[in-house]
Design a protein around this nucleic acid. Structure first.
Lengths: 357, 357
DNA sequence: CTGAAAGCGCTTACAG
DNA sequence: CTGAAAGCGCTTACAG
């Protein structure tokens, strides 16, 4: 087909080179077999437009035949950037972490990128140093930051300084559009409020997440927005501070349910706390939803594992992860990189019902 | 201190090179600054004994001063092996996955290795091809296989063929000692049996995990061992097949509790199913532990989130992860690489109690 | 549209 | 105990 300077075989190949072959093909092998220079093969790999169609097709055929895939380490060394994407997170919820990882992997499937996970601790004295060492040493292509580390301005500043691409996943827009995926927790809070209002409740309480999570404020704010639409509002007394944990849900539930008159509906900042309230209600001898309506947020596994199954606000965590990666590795020329917004939605199960007569 | 052939500075360094420095030091910089060849620096990095103490100290001082860390990509390219460790898994439990990841990261802290996660699906037609491509392309240093993918002999065979180091985490020894970490689920099953027997139960049932998980068999076998110690045994009728899911726990609970006479104690293959049985008991109007004793396995988060909190068998997932990595990257000369065994242990909470009068 | 040279930051033989 | 040369598998200038 075309002259090749050396024999058209790969040294040491005893079998097919694909199945059970001893040595993987390199760019040199492909170049030789296709009768071109390695630079031209490189152009094909990197989708350069400056290759004649005929040449490209010939090279692509050889690549396919040999099952060649460029070595990410060599490519990374030359590019001065690896093909690794870091997930840096401090979210304590296993379900969230796993869903997010699956979403990120969805987004990089077939791209040649790999996911490197990096839990962190914002309270650690080496917090920023650790992240910097991780990113610089691995020459990460980019990082994805879920809440609450996504809300830390120091991290964003650091990443900008060292020139590392990043996506922040948060409940509000806290950075330039190209860096943001917004979960719109506020909208979810309003959905919960409308549902509770429609059921006729008036004595309504809210269990908030920790102050340090932006989502705590958004979910509360949205809830108040939704109540306001019906002319209702939350007094400071109606808001109790939890910690997004099951135990804190129990404690907050205990406090709210001991009041007189007690609330007929409680909206919780997440499912864990809602599950805690369910347990608190049981201890108090109250039936859900007959005596008390409980609404959660997130729609993680626990929402369906408790009894009764929780009415909650579903957040599309996995989809958010996929879109985050696509935004990170995506084709810059494809579209203006505006902020990406995701919508939560209400899932009605059995923990919510009409206000008791 | 010693002659250096070129000026003792790093080009382009405008600041300290550590904080806010523009360029990271390379092996060449260190060699020049220490007045040695890069090969000698390489010897220090790789802990070669053939370096004079004085030389080593001088080089180490320069390395520390500049905060130099070798580039993993360049090192990997030369070594023909990356510094990435893969976790290949198909375990459906988020808590297990996260705990295992944390354990693996514990084991690699400070080592320069990074963790690349790779969920897989044993039912996929490209299952083995995917794993092969992942391992070969990334030139993985090694992989850790938790259950149930750890139980797949095809994967072990593939890894052996392509010469990739691996550790299998399983409930029994299914490979050479150097490849195994054994969870000893059998022992845990026996612990559950002894606890139930001590409480005086005679009508005892077992809800098994899926046939495809080795742990299902081990947990049952251990449970039967423990019962046998007290002269008790399980008839085929006392064993119901679940699927390690909450829903399957509900279904199996429904079946067992509709029998007459019904069992007074149910041992479940994992916590998820035990939580399902709790829900089933509630539907049937039974109190736990007054009317029914329920015992789980794993001691994941859900064990404490349900009501009553579950008596269960704690498995040290995170520790197992740490030890798996240590075994993988550990110093070969340190010790004979025998099989590593981990012990589960009984955690008594409120779902178990004396047999009803 | 294509290629020869130099380089990314390390290590492996091979000498001494 | 130490070093100069060659190479790992790619890409970036620079030519043509």
């Amino acid at each position: 087909m075309s002259p090749s300077k050396t024999p058209s075989t790969i040294p040491e190949e005893s079998e097919t080179g694909v199945e059970g072959g001893r040595r993987r093909a390199t760019i040199n092998d492909i170049a030789r077999l296709a009768g071109v220079s390695k630079k031209t093969v490189s152009r094909v790999i990197n989708q350069s437009p400056f290759v004649r169609d005929e040449t490209r097709e010939r090279i692509e055929a050889v690549i396919a035949e040999w099952g060649y895939a460029p070595d990410p380490q060599a490519r990374g060394l030359a590019f001065r950037r690896s093909f690794l994407i870091g997930m840096i997170y401090d979210n304590p919820n296993p379900q969230y972490v796993v869903n997010m990882q699956l979403g990120l992997l969805d987004g990089m499937r077939g791209s040649g990128f790999e996911l490197v996970v990096h839990p962190c601790n914002r309270a650690s004295p080496t917090f920023l140093t650790d992240i910097r060492a991780f990113v610089e040493r691995q020459k990460l292509f980019g990082v994805v930051l879920p809440p609450s580390v996504s809300e830390d301005e120091r991290v964003a500043k650091l990443l900008n300084e060292i020139g590392c691409a990043y996506i922040r996943i948060a409940s509000v827009e806290l950075d330039k559009p190209e860096h943001m995926i917004v979960g719109q927790d506020r909208m979810g809070g309003a959905q919960a409020a409308r549902h509770i209002v429609e059921l006729g409740h008036k004595r309504i309480a809210f269990i908030s997440g920790p102050e340090t999570f932006r989502s705590s404020h958004e979910r509360r704010g949205g809830f108040e927005d939704g109540l306001a639409e019906a002319g209702l509002s939350l007094s400071p007394n109606d808001i109790v501070q939890g910690a997004y944990t099951f135990e804190s849900g129990v404690a907050c539930g205990d406090e709210l349910l001991s009041r007189s008159p007690r609330p007929t509906a409680i909206f919780c900042g997440n499912d864990e706390m809602a599950a805690g309230v369910l347990q608190s209600a049981r201890k108090a001898g109250l039936s859900v939803p007959q005596d008390l309506t409980v609404v959660g947020f997130d729609d993680f596994q626990i929402a369906q594992a408790v009894w009764p199954p929780l009415t909650t606000i579903h957040t599309p965590t996995r989809e958010i992860g996929r879109i985050a990666v696509e935004k990170l590795i995506g084709d810059e020329r494809r579209e203006p990189r505006d902020v990406t917004k995701m919508e939560p939605n209400l899932v009605i199960r059995q923990s919510s019902g009409p206000v008791p007569a």
